[in-house]
Design a protein around this nucleic acid. Structure first.
Length: 349
DNA sequence: AAGTCGGGGCA
DNA sequence: TGCCCAGACTT
């Protein structure tokens, strides 16, 4: 049996039942694929169900506001996916007559759709012969063929793309793609892969050479940065001051409290004479610690966040353009990042 | 070619 | 802790 035939045989016996496998609607497949980028199936599944429930078609999706999309996306991370989906949906609505494209080349032009996602949608929705190459496929091919070129290097991507495409079952692209990904996720796992019961354990290079734990090879990235966020809760009657984050940093377009970033932990006396603090709140404001410093870990930065309540003496000294007073009862409607909504859950707002 | 963008699960 | 997850985009 060929490599692809073995995989498909395994898949028919072991495949997971997932809702986006029940449809050939390119819109729903697109939803699932974007949600699942760098995201485990168990984590993305509830989001997928909420999105298809809320937006039945890509035109419904396009007619929503970006804030609505980000609000539904809240907590899933990598929020540019949500922003790009909104742009892509409007392109499909306005330039493709609301018909979601299914061919690889057209899909690749849409924002948020790269080579993997274009291959996934075009094969699943239209059986186009494009091989997917995601983390699972990298791992399976790397181990089976014993390729130790780094999977996150330019050369590695080129090499693995070629091998993936050579192995694709041209007659059953959708089935083959699903099979190799599920095999990587369930059987040829990163840690403790099931080599003992694997149908490839007499042909897999990594098993034969005892290199399963060494493959695939990946280049290490840069070390994480340390950042210190001082958040300020400013209430006025039934309202609270909120700020929308801008471009060029994490959590773009999400809401949070007014923030002063520092390069180290600040004490309350230090904050009270901080230049930015005085500019925002004046030199007579008082502050009280609401939540002591907590560590929030992102892929490439560690954020140490502290929350303070501010008592203004006579209104805001300076109001930034991205600041707005929001009624507490409307706070749920804003799209917020994890640091903020966890704080809100813990406190009594 | 390297850096940036989240959040969670697991050993 | 470090690594990984149905990657894409920017610099």
């Amino acid at each position: 049996m060929t490599f692809g035939a073995e995989l498909q045989g395994w898949y028919l016996q072991h495949k997971r039942d997932l809702p986006w496998r029940e449809t050939r609607d390119a819109y729903k497949i697109w939803l699932s694929e974007i949600i699942l980028q760098q995201t485990r199936v168990e984590q993305g599944l509830p989001y997928y169900l909420r999105f298809v429930e809320r937006f039945e078609t890509v035109v419904d999706f396009a007619n929503a506001e970006e804030d609505d999309i980000l609000h539904l996306w809240q907590g899933l991370g990598y929020y540019s996916r949500g922003r790009n989906m909104h742009k892509a949906a409007r392109i499909v609505r306005d330039e493709y007559n609301g018909i979601f494209p299914v061919d690889y080349k057209t899909l690749l032009k849409l924002p948020g759709i790269g080579e993997y996602t274009a291959a996934a949608i075009s094969s699943f929705a239209n059986n186009e012969a494009q091989a997917v190459l995601d983390g699972n496929v990298f791992r399976v091919l790397s181990r089976y063929y014993g390729i130790d070129t780094a999977i996150n290097s330019t050369e590695g991507k080129k090499t693995f793309t070629a091998i993936a495409q050579e192995n694709l079952d041209q007659d059953h692209p959708a089935l083959y793609n699903q099979a190799i990904m599920d095999f990587g996720a369930i059987h040829c796992k990163p840690k403790q892969p099931l080599c003992i019961t694997c149908m490839f354990n007499t042909s897999c290079y990594a098993v034969l050479q005892g290199e399963v734990d060494r493959l695939p090879v990946k280049l290490k990235g840069k070390a994480s940065k340390e950042r210190y966020f001082n958040y300020f809760i400013v209430k006025d009657e039934a309202q609270i001051l909120m700020s929308k984050r801008g471009e060029g940093d994490v959590w773009q377009n999400l809401y949070e409290f007014p923030l002063i970033e520092s390069d180290r932990t600040l004490t309350i006396p230090e904050i009270l004479i901080d230049e930015q603090f005085v500019r925002y709140f004046g030199d007579k404001a008082e502050i009280k610690l609401l939540q002591k410093q907590t560590k929030h870990i992102l892929s490439h930065q560690n954020i140490y966040a502290t929350f303070f309540e501010v008592r203004l003496k006579g209104g805001l000294n300076q109001k930034k353009s991205n600041w707005d007073y929001v009624f507490l009862k409307d706070l749920d409607k804003l799209a917020k990042h994890k640091l903020i909504f966890t704080f809100l859950e813990r406190s009594n707002f």
